[in-house]
């Protein structure tokens, strides 16, 4: 009677893995795009297209996840949790795409003195994703260990916040136009938002484990 439900759940877990891997690839391409943009390497345009494609792929996988869940996977009182997790993971790819669009449409002239700091911020903001993936994998291994990975994600998010603040402070200390300062601030905030979104998704997974342990 319930075999079809277990098959559907297994499919959802596979889709989640694929979703997280796709978002991971999207963030890797986003980082590559940022470095190429800062180095004036024309490859950054190809990277931008790759980010768009990967974001679309992530969207498709998320819709498939929701379709399977609404089709009957998991106990109903838990379905909204899984859907929420899928949506929050998807928002990470959406934000990476938004930052890429910002680079491509606004074409901010980033001073050379900020290149290393922007690269560092970009690098740190995406480093939480492997921990998010570990959290999801641990759900079916040992739920009690999920909180350890959540702590790591929170630490990374705090570090990114700190970098963001310092970078914005440095921007407003530069001798450049106010308009450019505002544009750069927006860019920095958007990059930092990626780690916030990773933390949001991590929080949701953590809440799911609390629900199971009640």
């Amino acid at each position: 009677m319930f075999k079809h439900v277990r098959r559907r759940e297994h499919k959802v877990y596979l889709l989640f893995n694929e979703h997280l891997n796709t978002v991971g690839e999207c963030l890797a391409k986003f980082k590559e795009m940022t470095i190429n943009y800062l180095n004036n390497n024309p490859l950054h345009e190809e990277n931008a297209l790759d980010v768009h494609k990967l974001e679309s792929k992530a969207d498709t996988i998320r819709r498939n996840i929701e379709k399977e869940i609404h089709g009957g996977a998991f106990l109903p009182f838990l379905r909204e949790d899984y859907i929420e997790i899928a949506e929050r993971i998807d928002k990470i790819a959406d934000k990476a795409e938004a930052v890429v669009d910002f680079y491509m449409l606004v074409r901010p002239q980033i001073p050379d003195s900020l290149h290393d700091a922007i690269k560092e911020l970009t690098d740190r903001t995406i480093v939480g994703l492997p921990h998010l993936k570990n959290m999801f994998d641990l759900l079916d291994v040992d739920m009690t260990k999920v909180v350890d990975e959540a702590v790591k994600v929170n630490i990374i998010e705090s570090e990114v916040d700190q970098l963001e603040r310092e970078l914005i402070k440095n921007v407003f200390n530069l001798d450049i136009d106010l308009a450019l300062k505002i544009i750069l601030r927006e860019l920095i905030r958007n990059i930092a938002d990626i780690s916030d979104l990773i933390q949001n998704a991590s929080d949701r997974i953590e809440i799911l484990t609390v629900k199971y342990r009640v």
Binding site: F2, V5, R6, E9, Y13, F74, L75, L78, L139, D140, V141, D142, M143, T144, T209, Y212, R213
Partner: peptide
Amino acid sequence: ARKVKRIRVWERFIT
């Protein structure tokens, strides 16, 4: 239920 550490096993237990 608290002895169960894997989410899918937990769901099966509840079922």
